Simulated scan of single mutants.
Amino acid sequence: MESLDLQLIHALKIDGRAPLRRIASVLGVSDQLAARRYARLCETAGLRVVGRLNPRPVGQTVWVLRLQCVPSASHGIARALAERDDTRWVQLASGGTEVICHLAVHGDRDRDALLLDRIPASRRVTAITAHRMLRLFKGGPTTWHGPTSALSREQSDALAPGYPPPDARSSPLRLTDLDQVLLATLTRDGRTPHARLAAEARCHESTVRRRIAHLRTAGALFFDVDVDESTLGDPAATVMWMAVRPARLAAVAAALAEHPEVAYAAATTGRTNLFAKVLCPDDEYLYDYLSDRVGALPGIDTVETAPVIRVFKRSGAVARDRGRSAGASGERRSAQGHSPS
């Protein structure tokens, strides 16, 4: 992929709703060139910007579920989970016998409806482990640029939207009917113009602008980039479940968040208390990363790894099949770190 394309993707990861004219000015290219490249990326790389809710500011809790399945059932279970509105990421790992699912719920009732009522009714699921996410260190609104990191610090600062980080102790924001209409559209296309959003919501454009700004300022709404990672080198994704001594948990998680290979890192409940997702170009790189980088962090007692072989849902949207084979590398399309929250 050409440098300008990577810069454009990086810019959209910083602010998915930044006008192309502003992006072109920061990149030092013409408006027309930026528009042509953006259109080409949408066509050839499946590029799109999606609006996403940040769970905690709206009172949601995120659970990471591990479902051990009989091999013949894993694909069907993963597809069914991907169709649910309350799932964010659905991935197949461990040679196809494990489904990893991120579930965002508003209370125990929504969680129990899935864990206690629906999934256990199937004998195709042999074991379930549920980890409640306690603190997110990387992923979601914390942008991971990965292989698209192509802008200078000055360019990144010029494109940063400038919304303050949400206060984790503030009361959850109550979503309005207008919010629901806006989110329904922004989830499909995060760059939908204000005028079109206003038409769908049947209100003034200024009202839409103010409400989106309010949601972003409150940390409730952020914008993510979905792109076919095969155009970026198709790095292999691996999830890690780590047991870290409590006194070292914050330090280890913060260190992982600084690693460019890490797309997602969160402290959780459970026998393992730190979950991470890493992307490495090949097995040798992964081995060196685990032995040299992760192994050097004090406080980690155990590490369990599971390669991701297919992504059924990412960024809150069902993953699209762009005609790639169902083989090994063709199924590894999970590099958006970004972020399963």
Rank of each mutant, 00 (worst) to 15 (best):
G316P: 06
S94R: 07
R17H: 12
L215M: 14
D85P: 03
S206P: 05
D301H: 07
A218C: 12
S325K: 04
S122I: 07
R109K: 13
S206D: 12
E304D: 11
R191S: 14
H75F: 09
T143V: 15
D157T: 08
T129W: 11
R37I: 00
S72H: 05
E205P: 04
P164V: 07
V278F: 07
D157L: 03
E200N: 11
Q7A: 12
G190T: 12
S25R: 14
T87V: 15
G107N: 15
C280R: 06
L197P: 03
V64R: 08
F223K: 03
T207L: 14
H131F: 11
I77L: 14
T231D: 05
E43M: 07
R188V: 10
E284H: 00
R202K: 13
S334Y: 01
L232V: 04
N54S: 13
I14H: 03
L279W: 08
D179T: 10
G96S: 05
L116T: 07
A198I: 03
P57I: 03
A276V: 12
A18P: 05
H259N: 09
S334M: 02
D177P: 02
L159C: 02
R191Q: 15
V294F: 03
Q7E: 15
R36Q: 14
W63P: 02
P260E: 10
D31I: 05
D288T: 07
L286N: 01
L173Y: 14
V70G: 01
R314C: 07
T192D: 09
D283Y: 01
S74Y: 00
L65H: 02
V58F: 05
H102K: 01
A319H: 00
R216N: 11
D167C: 09
G316Q: 06
R111W: 13
G295V: 11
D292H: 10
A218G: 07
P147N: 04
P246F: 03
C42R: 15
V49R: 02
V308N: 04
N54E: 14
T143S: 13
P161R: 01
L116R: 11
R21N: 09
H194E: 05
G295Y: 04
T87F: 11
D224Q: 15
F137S: 06
D283C: 00
K13G: 15
L115V: 14
G140F: 09
G96P: 09
R21T: 13
R209M: 12
A73Q: 10
G330C: 06
S329K: 04
S325M: 01
T305P: 00
R84I: 02
R36S: 12
F222Y: 15
S3K: 14
Y285T: 10
A218W: 04
A250H: 11
P161T: 03
A213K: 14
T305S: 08
A201S: 08
P307G: 05
P246I: 04
T217D: 12
L151W: 08
H194W: 15
G323W: 12
T61Y: 02
C203P: 03
P165A: 13
E98Y: 00
V49Y: 05
R123V: 06
A257I: 09
T268M: 04
T268F: 07
V70P: 02
A34S: 11
E200G: 04
D228F: 05
A168Q: 10
V208R: 10
D301R: 01
S149A: 15
D224Y: 05
G190R: 15
D117G: 11
F312R: 01
Y163P: 01
E98N: 02
R84D: 13
G162D: 08
A335G: 09
Q32D: 11
G233Y: 01
